[in-house]
Every structure is written in C-alpha cells, then in structure tokens.
Design a protein around this nucleic acid. Structure first.
Lengths: 113, 113
DNA sequence: CGGCATCCCTTTTGATACTG
DNA sequence: CAGTATCAAAAGGGATGCCG
C-alpha cells in the first residue's frame, strides 16, 4: 500500500522528532522513566541549557512528554514520556536499525572504490 | 528492548530523511517508480528548482536514490529509489500512521479545554 | 535548580537571473 | 530540460548573564 504523497503526514512526525536533540531526549526518558532537568543535562553533555529547555517545551507542547513542577525551593522539575509518546518507540527503533544497515551499506560501497 | 541512548543511530536516519522535502520526494518516487526532474517539480509545486536539485543530490549521496542522465538534447534525467532506499518505506508508513493518531489525539485534547 | 533574555554567528532556504 | 550562480532573508543554535 502506498501513502498518497499529497496526503502525507510523514513531515508532521518529523516535525515532532526533529530538533537535533529530541530523539536522544526521548530515548533517555524511555529508558529511565522519569528524569529531572539536570539529570538530562548531565546525560547529554553537549546540549546547552537553552536548547534543552526549548526541546523539552516543544515535546511538551506536542504532548509527547509530561512536565511536572514541584513548587519548592530549590525547584524540582520532572519529565516523563506520555503513554501516547511511547507509541513513538517502534519508530525510533526502526530508524535505529535502518541506520545500522545504512552504515554497513556505505562501508561496502566504499570498498568497491 | 531499549536502544542505548549513547549508541543511538536514530539521528542518522533523521539526517537522511530531514530536509523539508525529502519525505515527499521519496513518497513520489516510491509511488511512481521512475520520474524525471520536471515531473517531480510539477508534483511538488512549492519547491524551488534549487531546493529540488539540492535534496536530490543529498539523497543520491546517501544512495537512497538513483540518478540517471541521458546524454541528449534536451537533457533527460531520471530519478528512482534504490533497493536499499525502499527499506525506508515501512518507516515512512509508521510515521504517517503515528501522525494521524497524533492529530486525533490533539483534537480530543482541544475539546477538553 | 531550572529556567528566561539578550546578543551574535552560522546554516538553511528562497527569489531571481543565467546557461549548456 | 535540468540545472548553476548570486544575493538576500530567515531560521537554528551557542555564549553569557540574570532571576525566583
């Protein structure tokens, strides 16, 4: 079965996943369940605070993740994946596997040259 | 089973798929088989010539599509998906379906408000 | 601790004109 | 027909400082 290109929603999913850091954020949350802001920050050393905040807000907006603020000092904010966001997991998996094949394929073709 | 976030290759697949026009180009080629440059251009009215050229070059570089030039006047260039690129189809499908659920989910949540 | 605001630079994309 | 080339606009992303 084909997707009619005119009716394609692939781009909408890409919009959700794209943002340079979103997949890795989601993978961490899928793996660890609930994580605090700084846990994520430490897990992804190269991300800036600004970017982490921004990506989390966008994921929250799309209802892929939950954001829970504990009104205390010092502040505590926990992030977790929504039930609905978990449905992205097979897609992330498929992309991961495809990419592993992709790497091998490219290496083969390198050797031909 | 989890993907270890540190070893994640999802981003590499996204690199291949992302480019604002790549999914729709791939869907057209999956649907129609072989297409000429101008066929693609007409099918995707909003894309500029420059962008179409660029995206096609990038897909070719990743060996997702074939580019065949017929040395004649006027020129004729045909594009098609490689066997290997076809393996992306299930992923495109899964994203399409997820996105349809995504839309419905958001509409539900709109009504609550 | 978990942000937001500001400034600045780089990359991406678009419009337009030209060519083998 | 299938592109390049050039210029301009917009988006993306990093560094730093301040705040409740």
């Amino acid at each position: 079965m084909n997707i009619e290109p005119e009716l394609c929603r692939v781009e909408d999913t890409l919009d959700v996943l794209v943002g340079k850091w979103k997949p890795i954020i989601l993978l961490y949350l899928l793996k660890n369940g609930t994580m605090r802001f700084n846990e994520l920050k430490k897990s992804i050393p190269d991300i800036t605070q600004k970017m982490l905040t921004k990506q989390l807000r966008e994921l929250e907006e799309e209802e892929i993740i939950n954001r829970v603020v504990y009104p205390q000092v010092p502040p505590k904010v926990e992030y977790s994946i929504t039930e609905y966001g978990k449905e992205l997991e097979p897609i992330l998996h498929a992309m991961h596997e495809w990419s592993n094949r992709h790497i091998q394929q490219k290496q083969k073709n390198q050797m031909k040259k």
